[in-house]
Simulated scan of single mutants.
Amino acid sequence: MDDALVIGGTRFIGRHLVAELLDHDYDVTLFTRGTRENPFADDDRVAHVEGDRTNDTALEAAATTVDPDAVFDCVAYHPKDVRAATRIFADCEAYVYVSSGAAYGREEIPKREGETPLHECTPDQATDDSFKTYGNRKAEGDRAAFAAADDGVPAMVVRPPIVYGPHDYTERLNWWVDRVNHFDRVVVPGDGTNLRHLVYVEDVAAALRIVAERGEPGEAYNVGDRRLVPLEELVERLADALETDVEIVHAGPRELAAGEISLEDYPLYRSYPHVLSTAKLAGLGWESTPLEDSLARTVDDHLESDRDGDDNGPDREAEERVLAILETL
């Protein structure tokens, strides 16, 4: 494969995917609305076709203009988007849909492709735009890709959990980096053993390329850090990357109530472990970046940016009330 069309490609996962494809000698075309700054605007290796991916006519025009070997769909948020794209790009060599670990509909450890059931999706959920139906819509997008593969379209699915790294506009990990960078005492909810699978963005980009080149149509592939760490260890590793020391203070629901905070208010907290098996993807030759390297790059980017993730977690003033209560116990 030589020519790639990236639907999306200027913000986060897609941005890293374009860099990954360029590093592997692809000719790349972006298909975006043009409403965000294009980081590749001055790179003559990257073409740009402007259009709204929810407009089938615009997507059909892009297919005619580009005639790509591989299509990477980074911004399909509704099942109809996947159905349209797999129809329009039915003749490509690979169509890769960026799904989510949120598509899994049952809590088990680990969640495995083809074994762990996916969420159901009602017609109303399929057209909803709220976060509460995100997993349902992604699951139905998976089923749309599988149905297309049954009809001969080389459609494949990649499922990441929470993605972190440079240019992360969600700022969920940035919240923790900012806490560690600015405070000597960091509140960790619960007992610190909370475990939620994360994945470094460059590893997602590599997974998308590898699945396009080596994956099997009709298959899904989980992608996640091969080294999982509980939340407390993650905070400690961020402190190492920042070359600082922090005192970790555990707080349960009773203590957090002093600041009118709940466990779930903390970014990356999840009451039940969320772990994806990545063995299937590793079988294609994919490897993940060592955690110390991915966190170091993430921290460096954080320090160079103006992101602090402040809207993602409790206010420090509320946490100070919790810390004051804990000092009296």
Rank of each mutant, 00 (worst) to 15 (best):
L303E: 15
A144V: 09
S277F: 04
D2G: 12
E60W: 02
E264Q: 12
L284I: 03
V82W: 00
D3V: 14
G309E: 05
A148F: 05
L295Q: 09
L268G: 02
D150V: 06
V246F: 08
R179I: 05
R83E: 15
F31M: 15
D310S: 15
G114Q: 12
E171G: 05
L284G: 02
F40K: 05
H302G: 04
A94T: 05
I7N: 00
D25Q: 15
L295M: 11
E50L: 14
R106F: 07
L30P: 01
V163C: 07
D245K: 13
V235W: 09
A144S: 14
G285R: 06
P273V: 09
E20C: 15
A147W: 06
Y104A: 07
G224Q: 08
V96C: 01
H24C: 07
R11H: 11
E120F: 05
V187S: 04
E317V: 13
E243C: 06
D150K: 13
G313T: 08
K80E: 14
S305D: 07
V299M: 08
I325W: 07
G224M: 12
A126R: 03
A84L: 04
P117C: 03
L281Y: 00
P267K: 10
L276T: 05
T35E: 14
R185S: 14
A258M: 03
E108A: 06
V157Y: 02
R15Y: 05
V235Q: 10
P267T: 11
E108K: 08
D203M: 09
T127W: 01
A102Q: 12
L276N: 02
L329Q: 13
I162Y: 11
A63V: 01
L30Q: 02
E320R: 15
R321I: 07
H119W: 07
T278E: 04
H119A: 00
T32M: 10
Y104I: 10
I13W: 00
F89A: 00
D73S: 13
A282V: 10
T328F: 06
V177Y: 00
A61V: 12
A239I: 12
P267I: 10
C92I: 02
H274E: 14
L231S: 06
R214F: 06
T193V: 09
Y97E: 01
A212Q: 03
R321T: 14
T193K: 12
L30I: 09
D3E: 15
Y272H: 12
Y104D: 03
A279N: 12
D25I: 04
T122P: 01
E140S: 14
A145G: 09
Y97T: 03
A102P: 02
R172Q: 13
D225H: 01
V6Y: 04
D124A: 15
E115F: 10
G218I: 05
V96L: 02
P68R: 00
P160V: 07
A76F: 02
D151F: 01
L238G: 07
D245A: 14
T193F: 02
S294N: 11
Y134V: 09
